[in-house]
């Protein structure tokens, strides 16, 4: 498969590479979610995962020459914007109650 893709290189990029990039970005997001100790950075890792999934949606929309995949990404973006607003408001509320952003010290649901 590798030799085939190299021999036809002038004709663009195989879509597998886009999907692979999306998978790697998603995994980096999960790793960030696991190793980061700051509440805001953990939240940023979630945004990274959402973006990775969006990239694979756009790739498949390109593959099928369909608009539906792009519309799905549009809705994901809208929901992610709403989620970011609410999530950051929750972070502010937590910071007011605990005066810290370290996830190790925020181990109770009760504020």
């Amino acid at each position: 498969m590798n030799s085939a893709s190299i021999s036809v290189v002038p004709h663009g990029v195989p879509l597998e590479w886009y999907l692979l990039l999306s998978a790697i970005l998603f995994s980096l997001g999960v790793i960030g979610f696991l190793i980061k100790r700051n509440l805001i950075t953990v939240f940023m890792s979630i945004e990274l995962m959402l973006n990775a999934v969006n990239l694979s949606f756009v790739t498949f929309a390109h593959q099928w020459h369909a608009v539906k995949g792009q519309i799905f990404v549009f809705f994901v973006m809208m929901v992610a914007a709403a989620e970011a607003a609410v999530g950051l408001a929750i972070i502010i509320a937590i910071f007011r109650a605990r005066a810290t952003l370290a996830v190790d010290r925020i181990d109770l649901m009760k504020l």
């Binding site: 498969m1 036809v8 004709h11 663009g12 990029v13 195989p14 879509l15 597998e16 886009y18 999907l19 692979l20 998978a23 790739t59 929309a61 390109h62 593959q63 020459h65 608009v67 792009q70």
Partner: peptide, 17 residues
């Protein structure tokens, strides 16, 4: 992903939605 062959390619000449 790497086993799925024939997903197609993306090139500059492709149409834009």
């Amino acid at each position: 992903i790497l086993k799925a062959e024939g997903l197609g390619r993306a090139a500059m000449q492709d149409g834009i939605t």
